[in-house]
Design a protein around this nucleic acid. Structure first.
Lengths: 225, 225
DNA sequence: ACCGAACTTGATGCATCCGTCAAATTACTC
DNA sequence: GAGTAATTTGACGGATGCATCAAGTTCGGT
């Protein structure tokens, strides 16, 4: 028991170390392979048994929410700075989107976070929501400047990032090309009437959470005998 | 033995029926759930044991290549007719893409086929290649008419369809919105310089085949006790 | 030094899916 | 109607991944 009479039990040193090792391993693997990487493998890389991971975090979501938000927040801050170096509203908007996309392409964890592949991660959700809000202020400014098409709405960001995430899996840099096409289509001068309205808030919430089955698995021919 | 002396053994009636049932079940499940649906489930729906499926087709790819090409060809033909009802080159191009996208949204098998999620399916590959070639003739015509941006190339179609497939998983009809944004960006009048070149042929081949890990799995919180 | 609490282990159970095999069944020919 | 070869069965083994738990280990206060 702690001497200070506090009721919260102080973590044992070994427990503390386990958590640190798990955290480090989780960051590595989430970044490399996405938020859906095998938990057993995280435990293995941490040099700890799977049981310990479950004892410490309980669920994958808890682990994600413990580890990813800091990372994500830091990266998204970088994007803000990057964006605000531009005085032109359109450039600010475009650079912000582009910078986030760049980071998504090299960090599967961020990519999964931004495309909202997991529920029950309140801290991470908050971080992402903040990033989307920020994006929206840039968007509004670009609209007011008459540069961004007027029918673009907040919920359309998910389209941008979803497309980017998908493109990033094709080849190292093509997503930049895909994004360029889209950005050209987002300029006010390029706008033609849209066939359908944006996601309503329910759909957006659903899309941001459920992520209805993004089709898994490498399509490589399976091992044959 | 056949009486006509041919060496090719005629399939027994039950074998023939098994194949038909498997084919029908495969079409249903591929369409509903994509080309990566469990083979056991196809066998179950066909009212046949998994062993039979493997005996008849050997590999998932063989099954795909046996049943999907007809379906895909038929649908892609529909798209051609749909497109050619338009005399304006841009409309022809845009409608073709849009029609294929529509069908992809309601048919997971077609979606997987067009985004090339499987290797070792020569017949299916041929069908898709043909569709891409057709798309490219429409694209060229639209470029010659000065409507489609000049820096658009064949390999960019994969970007369109990949984005669509990803968007289609968000909500029933948003992909139309995403596609509209992109198409607006593809008009010659909207073109700004592109940051990177297109996929080279190797990358294209790789992207068309390997499909490097499209991130699987529903992200729903797992069942807890 | 000891004792109880906290921590960790790793084996275990569960579930999903793929691919194979010997055995049983079926259909076709004579 | 019987023989035989093709066909089908369905249980099996292997692989992956999640989650749990009893048992053993280590810590830290007294």
């Amino acid at each position: 028991m702690p001497t200070d009479g506090s009721t919260r039990p102080v973590l044992r040193r070994d427990a503390q170390r386990s958590i640190e090792k798990l955290t480090a391993a989780a960051i590595e693997l989430f970044t490399e392979r996405g938020l859906d990487c095998p938990l057993d493998e995280i435990a293995r890389r941490a040099g700890v048994s799977p049981g310990t991971l479950y004892h410490r975090f309980g669920t994958r979501e808890a682990l994600i929410d413990a580890v990813v938000p800091e990372l994500a927040a830091e990266q998204l801050d970088t994007a803000v700075q990057y964006a605000e170096a531009n005085s032109d509203p359109w450039e600010r908007f475009a650079r912000y989107v582009e910078k986030i996309s760049t980071m998504m392409a090299s960090d599967s964890a961020l990519s999964d976070a931004v495309t909202r592949r997991y529920d029950d991660t309140p801290r991470l959700s908050a971080v992402c929501t903040e990033a989307f809000d920020r994006a929206w202020t840039y968007a509004e400014q670009a609209q007011e400047a008459g540069q961004l098409r007027a029918d673009f709405v907040t919920g359309d960001f998910i389209l941008l990032f979803t497309a980017n995430a998908a493109h990033a899996r094709l080849a190292p840099d093509v997503w930049r090309r895909g994004l360029a096409f889209i950005l050209d289509g987002l300029r006010a001068s390029a706008a033609h009437p849209l066939p359908v309205g944006p996601l309503d808030s329910d759909q957006l919430a659903e899309a941001m959470h459920h992520t209805p089955e993004p089709h898994t698995g490498t399509a490589r021919a399976r091992t044959r005998r």
